[in-house]
Nucleic acid binder design. Structure first.
Length: 213
DNA sequence: AAAACGGGGGC
DNA sequence: GCCCCAGTTTT
């Protein structure tokens, strides 16, 4: 797929977004959405299905939805609630570590810069991107496993890893063209262009896709 | 560069 | 039963 068709595909996706992304809005969160709860929720979501994460979010934030309250819980209390998400021992410890860091280093406020977020143990590049985007509305440029898969299926890149895809994306596209792309393609990858059994019959871009994967 | 951390959902 | 999950830290 060349750059012209890539731009067309993105445009088609944007125009049809409300239709195909409706299922992604099916979740009622049932807890206060603050930068802090968003950050903790991101930690819980690592390598875990959305439905499972959400159930754990609700239970955990019913117990504590601020760092002040969270550090009063024991690791075992947290583990008990988040058990189904997997990696529960490590994640419980990470949640406590992060809460302490936010309290002590940042006066209880989640920092707004990527560098400061990355300085927190337990927050890596992907988590920092999600937090910046979801909590502070910053449009980030990143290539996660969804975006990587889609770019390859479309035939816009031919790469092995998300890191390679990101490199090529930055070479091929201007910063303006990259803006908002990540969020759009992640939604697309979750709803239609899934890893297994993509729903090509409902895909707005199927005519342009080269189905490379 | 590879291992370790893991239970739950879809098929 | 097998594959997958917006990942990060440690070895």
């Amino acid at each position: 797929m060349n750059k012209i068709n890539f731009a067309k595909a993105v445009k088609l996706l944007e125009e049809a977004y409300e239709d195909w992304d409706a299922p992604a809005k099916r979740f009622e969160r049932g807890y206060r959405r603050t930068p802090y709860t968003i950050m903790i929720s991101v930690v819980l979501s690592f390598r875990t299905k959305d439905e499972v994460t959400l159930a754990a979010d609700k239970k955990l934030f019913a117990l504590a939805d601020t760092p002040e309250k969270m550090v009063k819980l024991s690791r075992q209390e947290i583990e008990k609630v988040i058990y189904p998400v997997g990696f529960y021992r490590k994640k419980a410890q990470t949640i406590l570590d992060i809460s302490h860091t936010v309290l002590e280093r940042f006066k209880g406020e989640v920092p707004r810069s990527e560098a400061e977020l990355l300085g927190i143990k337990g927050i890596g590049p992907k988590a920092a991107n999600i937090i910046l985007e979801s909590a502070f509305g910053v449009e980030t440029v990143a290539v996660d496993i969804h975006v990587h898969r889609i770019l390859n299926r479309w035939g816009f890149v031919s790469t092995k890893t998300p890191e390679e895809s990101l490199k090529i994306l930055k070479e091929k596209l201007t910063p303006a063209e990259q803006k908002g792309l990540n969020k759009l393609l992640v939604s697309f990858g979750q709803v239609l262009c899934r890893p297994v059994k993509p729903i090509c019959s409902e895909c707005p871009v199927v005519q342009l896709c080269e189905r490379k994967l």
